[in-house]
């Protein structure tokens, strides 16, 4: 692999991405276009996150990669390995020891700290995409702050289902400005976006967009005054560590409908088991 630069990308590309990252951090929630490169993994499998991570990493970093909250899912393994080979950085599964965390679909249960960077893989960065498919129009809506349509969608949910029926990729408003897609994390994780001490970076490779939340940015999940945002999770307890407050995966245990719940965050769960033992 010596034919490749540190963390795969050439320095010119990294500089281009870092410029986009700086702009993104300066304008929280704004989607900065960037010239996304073809990566050696498919679009939609984290190419945006990988490019952001590659441009962020320095040799002293300790990297954690999770998918669905777990360190050992196949895609997390594949991306972690990629950086082990191309950057030679230390990797870890422990959320509090990592300096950079790349994630798909979850925010760790362990609270993030100042100095950490979390990189989200984003499939569709445009929160308005499914209301208005045209990029030219959605950019105008963002620049004019025309977000009435977003609430029309939430209104329709309540009218039809009696509650807001968006359960993941739940749209948020950054400060008093942009409406942002938090990536397909469950809405349970949305409160962790708000005022986080960590730097939060979002990379969408196929869609060529980068956006960011600098530390301590206020982030509010969209809702109505009389139908406030509800990050609730299913009542249940982790069968391994007994947690009643973490986000749970449902596991089917037999073919007669038997099932159990387990923490989706494997690092959090394993450590609780260890501490309890």
């Amino acid at each position: 692999m010596s034919a490749y630069n540190f963390a795969y990308l050439d320095e010119q590309t990294k500089r281009m991405i870092r410029r986009a990252l700086l702009k993104a951090v300066a304008i929280p929630g704004y989607q900065v276009p960037f010239a996304s490169r073809e990566m050696p993994m498919p679009y939609g499998w984290g190419t945006g996150g990988v490019q952001v991570t590659a441009s962020t990493l320095v040799p002293e970093d300790r990297l954690k990669v999770i998918d669905q909250g777990a360190d050992d899912t196949t895609n997390a393994v594949s991306i972690r390995r990629f950086f082990e080979v191309t950057a030679g950085v230390e990797t870890t599964t422990e959320a509090d020891r990592a300096t950079v965390i790349q994630t798909r679909h979850r925010i760790p249960e362990t609270p993030l700290q100042e100095g950490q960077i979390i990189v989200y893989q984003v499939p569709i960065p445009e929160p308005l995409r499914f209301l208005e498919p045209r990029e030219t129009e959605t950019r105008k809506m963002h620049s004019l702050g025309e977000y009435g349509l977003m609430h029309v969608k939430l209104y329709e949910d309540i009218a039809r289902h009696g509650e807001i029926a968006t359960t993941y990729a739940y749209p948020v408003r950054v400060g008093k400005s942009y409406v942002m897609d938090p990536s397909p994390i469950p809405k349970f994780d949305n409160p962790k976006l708000n005022g986080s001490p960590a730097i939060q970076l979002f990379g969408a490779g196929r869609e060529q967009r980068i956006y960011a939340l600098p530390p301590w940015t206020p982030v509010k999940s969209l809702d109505f005054e009389d139908y406030p945002f509800d990050p609730s999770r299913a009542a249940g307890q982790c069968a391994l560590c007994g947690s009643t407050s973490s986000y749970l995966d449902e596991v089917i245990t037999d073919d007669s409908g038997g099932r159990m719940f387990l923490c989706s965050d494997t690092d959090y769960c394993a450590r609780r088991v260890q501490e309890g033992a």
Binding site: G148, Y155, F224
Partner: peptide
């Protein structure tokens, strides 16, 4: 979009955020 949503859009566009009022 439902009839209610159609009428409500302009209200929400100017900041109405109370479902029952809309």
């Amino acid at each position: 979009v439902s009839a209610g949503g159609n009428v409500g859009e302009r209200l929400m566009g100017v900041g109405a955020r109370h479902y029952a009022n809309i």
